[in-house]
Design a protein around this nucleic acid. Structure first.
Length: 294
DNA sequence: AAGTATCCAGACATCTGTTA
DNA sequence: TAACAGATGTCTGGATACTT
């Protein structure tokens, strides 16, 4: 039922994209070998396919840069942000910390990154590479300061590195690809949480046992598939206000091919990867697992 | 300016107790 | 005995401080 099942090699499954993005992030060198390395990291894909996929990505980037694909005009309410670049340090006076005017201003509440922003971040990462947070901030994630981008990147890479370990909760950092997969599937890859075997969370046997006493987790029942948190994904918290705050979920008018965007149908004729993603489908509202409470 | 480490708040998961 | 509700612990993510 999902793209994942298409295994002729031309279709890109979510897993492929994840692998692709990760590989891309890891191999930033410009050598020709780069593609081979990346291809090696993406099972089932040839160097050509990898390149093609990358070209699509670049196209997307260009479109974004050229303004064809409008960036959501985020602007977090509390973010003076006019800064897009400016107030890199809001707490500002790092030194002053002593004076921590915190008294009442405390630490700013973190403004969660939306999926849109994260995707833009990934695009920027692809284009400028690791380290050039300023450019990424300036040209991609315009709603975030370089500092924020760097912070986000820090967490992202940490997450990436621990990808193999059993993670427990899903996080936005599980999105390693700008596109997204078909929603109809309880997909797991992204959340990584146990797509295969229900390694399921952590190993906290509890859930697996399902039996445990938590009669509250219907989702964790023997259903073979869905990860513990039922719906994968990211952005759960976002269901509400944040979305609007940040703006539009990625329903941007995007080119049809938009591998990393909102395309909905592959371009016929070309080996269009793209399949899996479909941001349009990305309903930020994450139907949370009907876990009992909350 | 970028990278790294740490702090802190919020969200989520699980466990325990109570009631039907 | 099962279901529900509440409490507590753990994890994630963003911001900030410090270092290179």
């Amino acid at each position: 039922m999902t793209v994942e099942e298409v295994s002729d090699g031309s279709a890109w499954s979510r897993e492929d994209d994840i692998a692709f993005e990760r590989a891309l992030a890891n191999h930033t060198d410009e050598s020709e070998e780069k593609w081979e390395k990346i291809a090696a990291d993406v099972p089932g894909k040839s160097v050509d396919q990898i390149k093609e996929h990358y070209e699509l990505l670049v196209e997307d980037v260009d479109r974004i840069e050229s303004g064809c694909v409008p960036l959501p005009s985020y602007r977090s309410p509390l973010d003076d942000a006019g800064d897009d670049g400016g107030s890199s340090k809001r707490g500002g006076n790092s030194h002053d910390q002593g004076s921590k005017a915190k008294a009442d201003q405390e630490r700013r509440k973190g403004i969660a990154w939306s999926e849109d922003e994260h995707r833009l971040f990934l695009l920027g990462l692809d284009k400028y590479g690791k380290g050039d947070w300023r450019s990424i901030s300036r040209n991609f994630v315009v709603t975030r300061t370089p500092t924020q981008v760097a912070s986000h990147a820090q967490k992202y890479f940490i997450r990436l590195n621990s990808m193999n370990k059993d993670r427990r909760r899903s996080s936005i950092h599980d999105i390693t690809s700008v596109g997204d997969a078909d929603v109809s599937t309880p997909q797991g890859p992204i959340t990584g949480q146990n797509q295969n075997n229900n390694t399921n969370n952590t190993g906290s046997a509890a859930v697996v046992g399902g039996g445990n006493k938590s009669a509250k987790q219907p989702a964790s029942q023997p259903t073979p598939g869905p990860p513990m948190y039922g719906t994968p994904t990211i952005g759960q918290p976002v269901s509400g206000p944040l979305v609007s705050a940040v703006g539009t979920p990625v329903n941007l008018p995007a080119p049809p091919h938009m591998a990393y965007g909102v395309h909905s149908a592959p371009v016929p004729g070309s080996v269009v990867p793209g399949a899996p993603m479909n941001m349009a489908q990305m309903p930020y509202t994450m139907p949370r697992t009907p876990t009992a409470h909350r």
